[in-house]
C-alpha cells in the first residue's frame, strides 16, 4: 500500500481545504482594484521565482543540501500536480469547444462529432486498460479489452500518427524539386553542402568512396603527416567530408545560435519573474 487510510484522509482534507481557499480567493481578488490585483500577482510571482533561484544559488553543506532543499523537494510534488492539472484543463477546453460545435450545428460540426466519439471511445478503453494494468478495483484484463485497445492504439492511433509525420517526406520532396534553385552563390553553396551531407552520411557514401579507390582507413603514418597524398585522399571520402561539415562547420554555428537563444531566454525569464512582461492583449 502506498498510503494508509489516515494519510489518505489527511490528503483529501488538504485538497478540500485548498479548493475552498481557491474558491474564496477568486471573489476576493475580484473586489481588488486592477492595480492592487496586479501588485498581488506580481508579489506572489516574485516570491515563487525567488524560492527556486535561491535554492539553486545558496551554498550547500556537507550533505549536499541547503536550507531550501527539503521544501524544494516538496514543492516539486505540487508542481507536478499543477502540470497534470493543465492536462485536465486542456481536455475540458477541447471537449467544451467541440461539444458546442456539434450541439449548435456550426459549420463542419461533423468533424467535431467524430472527435468527440473518438475521444470518448479512446478514453474509455485507455482508462480501462490502465486500471487493468494496475489491478485497480479488481479489474482484470479481458479479451475484449485486449482486442479493442490493440485496435485503437496499435492499429489506429499509432498508424495515424506515423502517417501524418511521414507525409512530411512527400512535401519535402515536392518542395525541394520546386524551390531548391541555384539562383545565387549562397544557394549554390547550401545546395552542394546539403547534397554532400545527404550522400556522405548514408552507406552509399562509403560505397562511392570505396569504388573510386579512396583509402578506407587512416593509418598512424597518415595521421602524423596530414599533407600526405593518401591522407588528403582519405579526407576526400564522402563520409569524412560529411562528418567534417557536421562537426567542424555545424557545431560552432549551433553553439552560437544556442548561446543567443540562451541569453534571450534569460532576459525573458527575468522579465516574467519581475512581472515586466505584459503578454499579448
Amino acid at each position: 500500500m502506498l498510503f494508509d487510510t489516515t494519510q489518505l484522509v489527511v490528503a483529501l482534507l488538504w485538497i478540500a481545504g485548498a479548493f475552498a481557499l481557491a474558491i474564496a480567493l477568486i471573489p476576493l481578488l475580484g473586489t481588488l482594484p486592477p492595480r492592487g490585483r496586479f501588485a498581488l500577482i506580481s508579489f506572489v510571482t516574485f516570491i515563487a521565482g525567488l524560492f527556486f533561484a535561491a535554492e539553486f544559488f545558496l551554498p550547500v553543506g556537507e550533505d549536499n543540501k541547503n536550507i531550501l532543499t527539503d521544501p524544494f523537494q516538496k514543492m516539486q510534488g505540487s508542481l507536478q500536480v499543477i502540470t497534470a492539472l493543465s492536462l485536465g484543463l486542456g481536455t475540458y477546453g477541447l471537449v467544451r469547444l467541440h461539444l458546442r460545435n456539434a450541439v449548435q450545428r456550426r459549420p463542419q460540426w461533423g468533424y467535431s462529432l467524430v472527435l468527440l466519439i473518438a475521444f470518448v471511445v479512446m478514453a474509455f478503453f485507455s482508462i480501462w486498460n490502465t486500471m487493468a494494468e494496475k489491478g485497480l478495483f479488481g479489474i482484470e484484463r479481458t479479451q475484449l479489452l485486449e482486442n479493442a485497445f490493440t485496435l485503437l492504439f496499435d492499429y489506429t492511433l499509432i498508424q495515424l500518427d506515423a502517417t501524418m509525420f511521414s507525409l512530411i517526406a512527400f512535401y519535402i520532396f515536392s518542395a525541394a524539386y520546386r524551390a531548391f534553385r541555384i539562383r545565387s552563390i549562397e544557394a549554390s553553396i547550401l545546395m552542394f553542402t546539403a547534397m554532400l551531407v545527404m550522400i556522405g552520411i548514408v552507406p552509399l557514401g562509403k560505397l562511392i568512396s570505396d569504388s573510386i579507390g579512396l583509402p578506407a582507413v587512416q593509418t598512424a603514418e597518415m595521421r602524423t603527416n596530414p599533407f600526405m597524398l593518401e591522407n588528403i585522399l582519405y579526407n576526400l571520402r564522402l563520409p569524412q567530408i560529411a562528418g567534417w561539415i557536421q562537426e567542424t562547420l555545424n557545431a560552432p554555428v549551433q553553439r552560437a545560435i544556442e548561446f543567443g537563444v540562451g541569453i534571450g531566454a534569460l532576459a525573458m525569464a527575468i522579465r516574467l519573474w519581475l512581472s515586466l512582461e505584459r503578454g499579448i492583449n
Binding site: 524539386y177 534553385r181 550522400i199
Partner: peptide, 10 residues
C-alpha cells in the same frame, strides 16, 4: 532520389 530531382529541377 531527392538529389536527382533537385539537379533535374535546376
Amino acid at each position: 532520389l531527392i538529389i536527382f530531382f533537385i539537379l533535374l529541377g535546376n
